[in-house]
């Protein structure tokens, strides 16, 4: 009898119950990560243009192409994540303007269109003056394109963890972190030591500020809202995403910060490049954890 009972408890049971599940998974992480690099690179080449335009000479075409590719990766994963991807055109023909998703889709499309124009300007006409003029407007547009994902997260009323003020700052910091890291890697020997130190400083400071915000939420978030406290349990102690959370924090922020300092002390470009690679890789992990954990909470 006991044996039969035990066998019964090992039966595979499929429950027809509404359990919390992850609807926005790694496709959306790819979306946010690729967009950070795409817009971040634009911010960085605009800064380079203002700081030392002579170093722009051989960097205009490669940086805009890399940004364009990353923006297309972002759009691709946005599209793939739709359960009805062939109805994507509805966003343009039945737009609902209270939705940050709609506004974002329109702005991102315009942004990518302008980037394509800039590539054409460089490859077909080699017109750096027009490129630099367009860069100003694309940089302006890059700000809301970077921020609108924070708007979507803010409109996700069910996910108390995502608040507009912190998420918008984190989006900008993700762009400056990954943008500076990418231009350090693309620029390589074409950038002077002074410019590399400048971008290294942006990388290190972005990592520091983003880390401070995450730690602030980690420590103090639970003191304000019951739901936030419950969500943060997933990244604390034995929480399901605790290891991944700390791997992300170390790889994206703590190690790059230390390596940036070390590269300045030792005047080593290779250490700076290592910091850049770690920051880009770690950012994906950080974004993924923060995206997924609020979705694990039961809402009903």
């Amino acid at each position: 009898m006991i044996h039969e009972t035990l066998a019964a408890t090992n039966a595979v049971v499929t429950l027809d119950v509404p359990l919390p599940d992850i609807f926005w998974g790694w496709y959306v992480t790819m979306n946010m990560w690729a967009k950070s690099i795409g817009t971040g690179l634009i911010f960085m080449i605009f800064l380079l243009l203002k700081k030392n335009s002579s170093e722009m000479t051989s960097l205009r075409t490669p940086t805009i192409i890399v940004s364009f590719i990353m923006m297309n990766v972002f759009l691709l994963f946005t599209w793939l994540d739709l359960h009805q991807m062939w109805r994507m055109w509805h966003i343009f023909f039945y737009p609902h303007m209270t939705s940050a998703i709609t506004i974002g889709a329109w702005m991102a499309t315009l942004f990518v269109g302008l980037e394509a124009l800039m590539i054409a300007v460089m490859i077909m006409k080699k017109d750096t003056v027009l490129f630099d003029k367009l860069l100003f407007w694309v940089t302006l547009l890059a700000i809301p394109v970077t921020l609108y994902t924070a708007g979507i997260m803010a409109e996700s009323t069910a996910r108390e963890l995502w608040q507009m003020p912190t998420e918008s700052v984190q989006m900008i910091l993700a762009a400056t972190l990954s943008g500076s890291a990418t231009i350090i890697l693309i620029g390589g020997s074409k950038l002077s030591d002074e410019t590399k130190r400048f971008f290294g400083a942006i990388l290190g400071l972005s990592a520091l500020m983003a880390f401070i915000i995450y730690m602030s939420e980690y420590i103090f978030g639970a003191m304000k809202a019951e739901e936030v406290a419950a969500v943060l349990e997933y990244v604390k102690g034995d929480g399901k995403y605790a290891t991944m959370f700390w791997v992300g924090q170390w790889v994206a922020y703590i190690l790059p910060m230390l390596l940036v300092v070390l590269s300045r002390v030792s005047k080593s470009s290779s250490i700076l490049s290592l910091a850049a690679i770690l920051a880009i890789a770690g950012l994906w992990v950080v974004k993924h954890v923060w995206l997924v954990i609020p979705q694990l909470l039961p809402l009903s």
Partner: peptide, 10 residues
């Protein structure tokens, strides 16, 4: 279009 925005918002 199945973006699941509503699932995240409700």
């Amino acid at each position: 279009i199945g973006c699941a925005g509503c699932v995240m918002a409700c």
